[in-house]
Design a protein around this nucleic acid. Sequence first.
RNA 1: GCGGGAGUAGCUCAGUGGUAGAGCAUCAGCUUCCCAAGCUGAGGGCCGCGGGUUCGAUCCCCGUCUCCCGCUCCA
Length: 495
Amino acid sequence: MTKDMKDIVALCKRRGFIFPASDIYGGLNGFWDYGPLGTELKNNLRDRWWKDMVLCPPLGPDGAPVEIVGVDSSIIQNPKCWEASGHVGGFNDPMVDCKESKKRYRADHVVVYWPKDGQGSGVAFDKDAEDAEIEKRLKKLTNKALADFDTAKLDQIDTAKFANIIGPDVKTPGTLTEPRQFNMMFHTFVGATSGDENKAYLRPETCAGIFLNFKNVLDSSRTRVPFGIAQIGKAFRNEVTPRNFIFRSREFEQMELEWFCEESEVPMWFDFWVDQRTRFWDAVGIPKSALHFLDVPKDELAHYSARTIDVEYAFPFAAPGYDELEGIAHRGNFDLTQHQQFSGQKLDYFDQATNSRFLPHVIEPSTGLTRGVLALLCQAYTPDESRPSGVYMNFTPAMAPKKAAILPLTAKEDHVPLAQKLYLELREDFAVDLDIKQNIGKRYARQDEIGTPYCFTVDNDTLADHTVTVRDRNTMAQERIHMDKVADYLKEKMK
RNA sequence: GCGGGAGUAGCUCAGUGGUAGAGCAUCAGCUUCCCAAGCUGAGGGCCGCGGGUUCGAUCCCCGUCUCCCGCUCCA
């Protein structure tokens, strides 16, 4: 059984899950619109996250209920916020292109070896190049030994000297272009005039809005450490290469929790949240067997993080590997420290019990809602040549955009009125379809393709004893239940 | 941004220098007591967009946009 992204993308478009944004204008790279079914699916996943995190959060490791509150912060904040977070300074990496090798390099990742005697060209290497390899290439290109060179990072070198540098993958000097800034943040202007003084950014992640409101929440909500603040919302990144359907898009939606605790309790809470998040994915239909937990190696950690576990999912485009679905990071107290410094406002927490002040440490389970939707779609997509539709979407009942279809077995006779009655009853509580036209097989197939877990069919027996058949999407098996029990049946299945 | 591939019906694709087809989907009718997406029919495309060559371009050329694959990037 193979899952091909092309087929999944086609089904999403055909059945109204996801469309290219601005489709009638030819689309826009990295942007997507959610159609009728996709919106329901996304909302179901979003609401389930909010319920599990904020409305009905779990019991903590000690058995006591954990406390989490929500915020909904502005997408545009004071630009100083992004200086404090490091996004303005740290993520505008200057890049250089090589006209010869057609490769692109981060300027600070390229090391240039300059001859100490000033004779001949400088030779550039990737920062991770092995000594033996460097020595060999220097010898070949300049006939000098490693000890005859000084080194400097490319971003520290005057561009006037670039003409005399041999790029990392070529043999002649002068092929490297001037460094150019790559800004991952979308910028905009606040107010009617556009100039540097009112430049602002669309948030590249939602968590900053949580840290900015840390003090406001403390002052207004009687929360006490340990506690969490959650937020769901859009974020924007000017990705160099949007790729893999909605996996890496320029506008996306995040679900983030910042869990504030004492430093000494970090390991306990870290493990707790990894466990909780795994349970969540399992509950919405992503089993642990489809996940991979990557303990991010120290040298690849973000500058603020002491430990991060990437929860990766077996996306078809990553096969046979995995790609990131969620990151659970120990951010230390980096964010509060930075915002305290840049804003000049005290953000420390006063603990009445111990009469001490401190900046809490943070555990951040951060996931992409839209990546979650993609994982749900990929996981649900099930080719099955034995059935007419050739495929069905195996959503859990709780996540499925449509919970059930009500089908009169025939369009004539007297099946229709009973089906309508059942439909009107169910639609008060569930997203259900009533489908009367065409033969029953065609209608089952249609529901399979959009992942409706149950079909209730009215037939001749219904007229006599008010029972209907329940047809299970995955097994195609049927059982009879009383019409009055259908609502309870659905409710039970959606737990 | 670079290299390669591709844009024809809602989807997947054929096709020809003389203004277009198939399968599926959609809709209507028929059939059907349960997978018979079976039967009949209908709607739907200025062949991505803009130029150029030509008597004439969906086809050839140029530009542009978008998508896919590989680099680069992914805090």
